[in-house]
Amino acid sequence: MGLTRRDILRWLATAGAGTAAAAWAKGGAAGLLALVREARAAAEGRPEGSAHSGEGMARDAAETRQWVMVVDLARCEGCRTLDRPPQCTVACTAEHHVPFDQEWIKVYEADDHGHHYFLPTPCMQCEKAPCVDVCPVGASYHAENGIVLIDHQRCIGCRFCMAACPYAARHFIWGDPPELPQTALVKYSPEYPLPYRRGTVVKCMFCAHRAREGRLPACVEGCPMGALYFGDYETDLASNGAEVVRLSRLLQERHAYRLKEKLGTRPRAWYLPGHGEAFLGQTPGDGAGVQGGAG
């Protein structure tokens, strides 16, 4: 047999030298770097220079959307008048089969100098997202539509993003997630990351998979008060499932603000100030003008 260890070594050396020579021919160190980058992009299965490179949000001309969410605090009363848990959270949990006790859109009950109000908090999808900045492996990234996604096949579970998130929007799959029959056949994508993987970080993704199908996020559809709007900076439209409005006008007219604006994270979730006043005090049975009658 002709092939000895030495032959193989020699062949390997030649091949390696050839590659390196080609790289140098391409322009020295820069060429070598380009080769490495190409190889990495190939390994990642993403085109070079895509949004995943962490350089920001690449643009895809016409069809690009820039999703935002608007929360009308004047209309949110934490589903108290319904005597039910927050319906946005319920809808979200059902849509995503959210594991354990996590709440991806959490409704906080806030007390601000005696003003009692409810604060639904999805992931803010910050434009300058601290979680994306600190991720050591680029598993957290901005999709082209501005949504912060997590690649659960890459996440190493260091939880730096959770420590960095100023909104406590991220959750961790600490143990083995429950196995659900309805999730068994779902094909994984960062937009709809089923089945969940132990030791990785999960969070709200504005129901990117539903928007792709042309549907509103589950929480927006689930909100019985129409307090949640889903919108798009690109077309400047937003909808709460009952009406379509101009996003910029809604934000301007209602003096929209963002949580912890001074941190400079530029969240994509806006809040219209209010204290649930559109609904508070209208509990069925005791509210003015409301009569529940048995048929």
């Binding site: 962490g54 900045d133 492996v137 598993a139 890459r154 260091c158 132990r198």
Partner: peptide, 21 residues
């Protein structure tokens, strides 16, 4: 401390210099 210690080499494969880690 890692949730996914078996993926530690991802830090070399996909390492982002922007991360303090």
């Amino acid at each position: 401390d890692l949730g996914r210690p078996e993926r530690i080499l991802n830090v070399l494969r996909f390492g982002r210099l922007e991360s303090p880690i």
